Computed example of a mutant assay.
Amino acid sequence: MTDVRLTAWVRGKVQGVGFRWWTRARALELGLVGWARNTGDGRVEVVAEGSEKAADELLAALRSGRTPGRVDGVVERWSEARGNLSGFIER
């Protein structure tokens, strides 16, 4: 089974509320690698690679309403995994 890359842009009150830490914890639980970073426009960008099932679960968690802060919307892009990531870091 081929790994996938999920890139998600999360908007809402997601900076300064522990959102990146929470995302990292969920990603590590799911066995994903990648990173989460704040963007200049107030969103958080999440890049995660791993199985499609695990990436789907992370996306569902981001949209669950059970995150720190408040998520108003998530836009995602799917692509093939590049395989150049290790661990999951907060940038």
Rank of each mutant, 00 (worst) to 15 (best):
R20K: 05
S86Y: 10
R26S: 13
S86G: 11
G34Y: 01
A8P: 05
G18T: 08
D72C: 11
W35L: 09
V47Y: 07
R20D: 11
K13G: 00
V74G: 07
N84S: 06
T39I: 07
G12S: 09
A81G: 07
F19R: 08
R66E: 14
V17L: 13
A36M: 11
L28S: 08
N38E: 14
L30G: 00
S64H: 12
R63K: 15
L6Y: 07
S51V: 15
L62Y: 02
E29V: 02
L6D: 06
V44K: 00
R20W: 07
G87S: 11
E45N: 11
A27T: 01
G31H: 14
A48Y: 04
L6N: 07
W22S: 13
D3P: 00
T39V: 12
V71R: 14
A61S: 12
G50Y: 04
G65H: 14
A61N: 11
I89M: 00
F88L: 05
P68M: 03
S79D: 12
G31V: 14
T7I: 03
E52H: 01
V4Y: 00
L59Q: 01
V17P: 04
S79M: 06
A81T: 12
F19S: 10
T23D: 12
L59R: 08
L6W: 05
K53C: 00
V47L: 15
L58V: 04
R63T: 05
G83C: 12
G83H: 10
G42N: 08
S79V: 05
R20M: 12
A61T: 01
G12P: 12
G18W: 14
A61L: 02
G16H: 03
D3G: 12
E90C: 08
T7R: 13
D41I: 06
T2Y: 15
G34C: 02
E52W: 02
L58K: 08
P68Y: 02
V74A: 10
A55H: 10
T67G: 02
D56L: 13
L85H: 11
G16S: 08
S64I: 13
W21S: 01
R37A: 14
E57K: 08
L30C: 04
E90F: 00
I89N: 00
V75I: 10
L62I: 02
A55V: 09
G12F: 10
M1E: 13
W35V: 01
G87V: 09
R20H: 09
M1D: 05
E29Q: 11
V17R: 04
V4Q: 06
V44R: 02
N84Q: 04
E29G: 04
R91E: 06
R26Q: 15
A48E: 05
V17F: 11
G42Y: 07
A61E: 10
V46D: 02
V17D: 06
L58A: 12
E49M: 07
D41E: 14
A48G: 03
V71Q: 14
R5P: 03
R63C: 07
T39Y: 00
A60M: 11
E52V: 01
S79K: 01
V74S: 07
R37E: 15
L32G: 01
G31K: 15
A81Q: 10
G50E: 04
V71E: 15
G73R: 06
V47G: 07
E29K: 08
R91Q: 04
